[in-house]
Design a protein around this nucleic acid. Sequence first.
RNA 1: UGCUCUGUAACUCAAUGGUAGAGUCCGCUCUUGAUAAGGGCGUGGUUGUGGGGUCAGUACCCACCAGAGCAACCA
Length: 936
Amino acid sequence: MTDYKKTLNLPSTKFPMRGNLAQKEPEMLKAWEQADLYGLLREHCAGRPKFILHDGPPYANGNIHIGHAVNKILKDIILKGKTLSGFDTPYIPGWDCHGLPIELKVEAKVGKVGTKVDAVKFREICRKYAKSQVELQKKDFKRLGVLGDWDKPYLTMDFQTEGDTVRSLGKIVENGYLRKGEKPVHWCVDCGSALAEAEVEYEDKTSSSIDVRFSVVDEDDLAKRMGADLTGEGAVSVVIWTTTPWTLPANQAIAVHAELDYVLVQVEGERLVLAEALYESVLERAELTGKVLQRCKGADLEHLQCQHPFYDRQVPVILGEHVTTDAGTGCVHTAPGHGQEDFVVGKQYGLEVDNPVGGDGYFLERAEIFAGESVDEANPHVIEVLKEQGKLLCYQPLEHSYPHCWRHNRPLIFRATPQWFISMDETGLRQQLLDSLDGVKWLPDWGQSRIQSMIENSPDWCVSRQRTWGVPITLFVHKETGELHPQTNALFEKAALLIDKKGVEAWFSLDKADLLGDEADSYDKVMDTLDVWFDSGVTHASVVDRREALNLPADLYLEGSDQHRGWFQSSLKTAVAMRGKAPYKTVLTHGFTVDAKGEKMSKSKGNTILPQSINKKFGTDILRLWATSCDYSREMTISDEIIKRIADGYRRIRNTSRFLLSNLNDFDPAKDCVPMSNLLPLDRWAVAQAAKTQDIILKSHDNYQFHLVYQELLRFCSIDLGSLFLDITKDRQYTCKGDSLARRSAQTATYHILSAMIRWLAPITSFTAEELWKHLPGDDKADYVLLTAWYDQLQPLDSEAEITESDWQQIFHTRELVSKQLEVLRIAEEIGSSLDAELTLYCDGDLFTSLIKLGNELRFILMTSSAKVVALTDVPDNAITIEGENLSIVAQSSEHEKCVRCWHHSETIGNNADHPELCDRCIENVEGDGEVRQYA
RNA sequence: UGCUCUGUAACUCAAUGGUAGAGUCCGCUCUUGAUAAGGGCGUGGUUGUGGGGUCAGUACCCACCAGAGCAACCA
């Protein structure tokens, strides 16, 4: 037997079947970095319209997790897509560098400020620590294949950025939005500082719960409110319940609910006012019996005066919505200096915000009997005093959930302190914010109603923190009047200039006389720092507006949906307060990653999957492909199984591309490309399918719906290519003369398809795409796919095509029906390969017209050795009629010899004495001018 | 506790007010000229549960369940 194999054009490529990504990606990264791919892109894109995605800065602490990876990968996909769409897409990654978590890390290493280190040294170490974390995360981000200006990222602790943060505050002050106020905050006496909400943990604690009598001053007044003279006998008291006896010195009122019923109850020798719903439980725990004498609504009790249990003052009864009958007495002890709700309701009634407790947790002089005592010491003392005064009705220990400092694990106190606020209503900021929402596109659209309701309900933003590592609030406040310095605006700029040069330290170590001269003695220099949300919130000014590469407003902000509360809001508030306009045109959000059961990932559950481990085991392109495959508007599920499936999908894409490449091994697009109009109809169809696919892909990019890109890409590889085009054209690719139109046509289509496909992949599996690009034939290629644009040589099928789209649909539908029929023969062991079969198809109408168009080349589409089309009227008895279809089939195994070269069965085998094993077609291809193909 | 979002085949995603559709997985099978690949056929879903309006719903409304996010409460 002659070996005809070498006369075939078998596929061949150096592009490896297996990606070996884990090893190859880092090498490619290195090469990109050396070539400065990001810089090349900027040069290449110079002058194009810009698309600005402003990076939300991750907090510079700890290793990156899967959520970070998702966020950065999505950003990268978007920007690479926009690059291919013809935009200039600078990307400046950023980090949030100030704030408590870093302070805590540093504290753990060097101790608290004022113990072993001073504040100056402490900030130095914080800065250093933050820098180290930035480098750590940067390494991992780069490993994800994310392109950006990694050499010049923005850090909120860059001196200039710190300076601009101060300038931003200055602008907000200038526009009149900053006000000084007081606010009860979670306060840790060990920290000596207020804590942010995130720094608070709830744990069980045993407290002293007490019921306390507040004597009613004027019984006649109460009688009026009850609507009748008081009956019964003994002193009359309103009873409150509290679990924090130490807050009683600050008591300013008793709150009741307007709608609730209150009763006057007669017990042994005295009368008590209690909520009707609770009086029985109160009597029970006080081991008393009693009966109701009279009743009224809470509203009737408003302004009733009661005697403070141990100070010489009277406190009013007030109304509050927060009063419930869940526990207590229905009469709520109100100390505006020690409770959030007390503070709010106290404000309505103009109550004094008294806070007799110092920052160290010890009572101040004015607390009189308790002066100098710690909060913990005061608790039993207060109870003792109440007992002495006969005001203690009941005492019980109570275990309940109570806020603790996450660091010191110590119960917190609520403590009113002077703070700086960005006011929501005084100058109409809230309304301006609401007005600004419509000018922004929110994706998904419910993002708008979410942020709207948050803004509607948002209290004034407390921007001050009593912290060490942060941007200072560079204000001078008059010692006597509490007023800001009249030159505040100019002073802001002076402070900012100093900070530009030396960082925040310039303010903290500033001698105020340097700025204020002789006035220095009259002013206090504020030493508070800004809430870190402010730092990141104003990056629209300190980064977007500052960097030459970027433009304001940004086209896009993209973060997790939790940032409606966070960065989206802090950015909006500061931008509107500074400029009256939103800093972004579009806000896109993604969901969180969850495990196979749909549950949140957490270290304690042990269900986390680290990006680093996926990179190591599978490669970043797999992680990127996973991020692509998810509908990120909801939760994104990740599990070992899912990653494995994604890896399967990757292999499909990789092998399909590889096969395309391998069929182009002798193809030079400059010389061998067949003009679109000369392509064989099947090849033309394949190009048209690619055009359709590209439409879907581009539209999905426009809508940021990458999971549809993924689905379409896989569908295209599996069906259009794997099942149809590639399977069918193998015969032509392999057996026709290498240089024939028949083969060059197929190769041209292959080349167009691959050229387009590499670009589809470029934003997603960036490493694989560049690897493919290197193997793509052609001499005048750009150095990187990303330096090109979406492939523009694909064309849809026009309606005048010889074989139209609907013809193809009928043809391929018939192919499916035939396949089913061949499967019957296969099971009967009459055939193995479909080429062992011969077919006669009986049909009429449109189907007949479509099939007949292919002449005797239909067999190539159906991949049988013969396929005849005959009018349905001639259908013989032995034909199988396909139910529900206009088709009858006679399928049988061929009686002819099988050509050893093309594997088709043919009666012509043996006709040529030189090549007794070949069919006439192969002889023509081996020795002659090459066969001519018209359609397929 | 409240608000918002999500819930379609084993997995990832589609679709439509009118008998649910892909790819992957899985089973069987062909192929040794994509071979640590490729093709064919097939199994598989009362579209979270329960109600409601509709000639008709997975798609609209209500309740519930589960998960997620945000918020509140904790005197």
